[in-house]
């Protein structure tokens, strides 16, 4: 472990292996992720970044033929133990996907959906408040406050992605997972979301998969480099980008592979 000094571990992955049918996608990953930090997962495509991310909220469970081995602990509790309820887990671990995927419902209903199904708002006023707060945190409130009943799919790509962020944080999760959240967005929308992440990390633990080196360097405190299903190197973002220990990492960062 390169960062034994850290006491603030939120997510602890130990010997995580994932199989899709017969094919092994992750070969025993050990990784600690800190609270209130942005951790970037980087690596060439197909190396297992998304697969690892989806282990953290057990989204792999819904894929036929996908098996997960090892343990992932959040706050010292193994989320793969029988005692953990997946639905409750996913309320604690929110997720933002690569392609903005708002529900074909109103903006309001998109954000209110999570709180509603988890019974987090007793009355309409509380729900209104949750929706407003979430949209504000996602930096979307000013743009949509006059048309909350418009369809979520009528927004621009960047707005849709912020709506998805608002939807994820509306249930007040501890962790937010983001799988290449900016890959479908233009540079301006990307900048808005990057700024937002800096904001959000005060309250949430953020894990982000990105294919953009610059983005990882800009927004993350820690970086983990994956290659062909192995975790090759991880540590302080600055350290990884300035003096990578591993040759593969260096080659990837300097654009020789990827």
């Amino acid at each position: 472990m390169t960062d034994t000094e850290n006491q603030n571990v939120k997510i602890k992955a130990r010997d995580v292996t994932v199989h899709y049918g017969e094919a092994r996608a992750l070969h025993g990953i050990d990784l600690d992720l800190n609270a209130n930090e942005v951790t970037a997962l980087i690596g060439p495509s197909g190396c297992g970044k998304s697969t690892f991310l989806r282990c953290i909220n057990r989204m792999n469970d819904v894929i036929d033929g996908c098996r997960v081995g090892g343990t992932v602990s959040i706050d010292e509790q193994n989320i793969y133990s029988d005692a953990v309820d997946v639905v409750e887990l996913r309320a604690r671990v929110g997720m933002v996907f690569q392609k903005p995927n708002p529900f074909p419902k109103s903006i309001y209903d998109n954000v209110a959906y999570g709180p509603r199904i988890h019974g987090m708002a007793q009355d309409r006023a509380t729900l209104d408040e949750v929706v407003e707060r979430s949209l504000k945190r996602a930096g979307l409130w000013e743009e949509v406050k006059d048309r909350l009943t418009a369809s979520g799919t009528s927004l621009s790509g960047g707005q849709q992605q912020r709506l998805c962020i608002a939807r994820a944080i509306a249930v007040n999760p501890a962790i937010v997972l983001m799988d290449e959240p900016c890959s479908a967005l233009d540079p301006i929308a990307t900048a808005v979301i990057e700024e937002l992440m800096e904001e959000l990390r005060r309250d949430y633990t953020i894990v982000i998969v990105t294919h953009s080196m610059q983005q990882a360097a800009r927004i993350s405190q820690r970086t983990a480099y994956f290659h062909l299903g192995d975790l090759v190197e991880h540590g302080q973002t600055e350290a990884i980008f300035t003096k990578p220990q591993n040759q593969q990492t260096e080659a990837y960062i300097s654009g020789k592979i990827g």
């Binding site: 989204m59 639905v87 309320a91 529900f103 074909p104 199904i117 249930v171």
Partner: peptide, 17 residues
């Protein structure tokens, strides 16, 4: 589209929901 299912699962909807 599977993205709709993922979105709902992602905020903690049960399979039935």
């Amino acid at each position: 589209p599977p993205s709709i299912r993922e979105a709902a699962l992602g905020v903690g909807a049960s399979r039935t929901q």
